[in-house]
């Protein structure tokens, strides 16, 4: 059970953004806040995904539901998802331009050999909805392969949904956070009681390369955030000390100590391609705020009816 947090003001700092990934540090909040942010990014940020599939012809070697499932998993660019309604909220029966984007996949292999059917073969059925298209700028996404005279003809609807209902609507591939590592090195003892060889042993004990030996052959922390709390370095330090002193070691006597700062969270979020990583995070905040607001709006009537 985490302790109640009373401390610094909430703060967020972006460390790195690329096209598909974002790293940021959230600090000054309790772990529950970090966890809700993570949970909302995974399960409650809406995107568009193919949801209803009509198969008119399928003479390929894959059966219908198999293809339908694969179509569903294709990430669709959903930056404009605010323009669409959830099918359950839409006034129409069936589908309309406010809640669905229609695609057609019609391919026949007439030339022989093996023909790849990819996300690039998906065509919009109407002019509008062109903003929702497969996120395949890194190369076409393979759906199935056709041999000579095999044919598929499919129409499908992309609809808005959330990851809670089906993981295909989740905008993230990874959304994780960890505590910030805090590494203490007793440099004085490392210098006086350890040989250069032993210091090198500690440096090499780290599987992710957190440490480096500097010019004076002293240990230096170079990649703090890589630390994954395996404590190999602590074990190594302990081993070296007990090798010479042969005594049970108190943790605080160790020359290397790894601990966690429990109010600083390092987040790593990778997008599926449906949304830009920074919009996933900021949408998650919007959704959380809205949820809290909804509940708040619904409490007052309770007081009156008591």
């Amino acid at each position: 059970m985490s302790e109640v947090y009373r401390g610094r003001a909430p703060n967020i700092e972006i460390n790195k953004i690329t096209r598909e990934k974002i790293k940021f540090t959230l600090s000054g909040v309790d772990s529950s806040v970090a966890n809700s942010l993570r949970r909302v990014m995974i399960a409650e940020v809406p995107t568009m995904a193919i949801d209803v599939v009509h198969i008119h012809t399928n003479t390929s070697s894959l059966h219908d539901e198999f293809i339908a499932h694969r179509l569903g998993l294709i990430p669709l660019i959903s930056e404009n998802q605010d323009n669409y309604d959830f099918p359950r909220d839409c006034k129409c029966t069936g589908h309309c331009e406010h809640c669905a984007v229609q695609f057609r996949l019609k391919v026949k292999n007439q030339e022989g050999g093996v023909l790849d059917v990819t996300s690039r073969d998906l065509r919009h059925l109407s002019q509008q909805g062109n903003d929702v298209r497969p996120a395949d700028s890194d190369g076409p996404i393979l759906i199935l392969k056709l041999r000579k005279n095999q044919e598929i003809d499919i129409t499908c609807n992309a609809r808005k949904g959330i990851g809670k209902e089906h993981a295909k609507w989740s905008p993230v591939a990874t959304a994780v956070f960890k505590y910030t590592p805090d590494i203490y090195l007793n440099q004085q003892r490392l210098e006086s009681q350890f040989t250069a060889e032993e210091r090198k042993e500690i440096v090499n004990s780290c599987p992710v390369g957190v440490y480096k030996l500097n010019e004076e052959s002293n240990i230096e922390v170079v990649k703090l955030n890589k630390c994954m709390f395996c404590e190999e370095c602590m074990r190594k330090g302990e081993m070296i000390i007990t090798r010479s002193a042969s005594a049970l070691l108190n943790v605080h006597d160790n020359v290397v100590r790894v601990s966690q700062l429990k109010d600083r969270f390092i987040f790593k979020v990778e997008s599926s391609g449906a949304l830009k990583p920074e919009s996933i995070v900021s949408k998650a905040f919007t959704i959380l705020t809205k949820k809290l607001d909804d509940i708040k709006q619904l409490i007052p009537p309770l007081i009156n009816t008591r």
């Binding site: 003001a9 703060n11 967020i12 972006i14 959230l26 909040v29 900021s282 905040f285 705020t289």
Partner: peptide
């Protein structure tokens, strides 16, 4: 959350 969002 509002504060964090604005900062972000």
């Amino acid at each position: 959350f509002k504060g964090l969002q604005d900062q972000f």
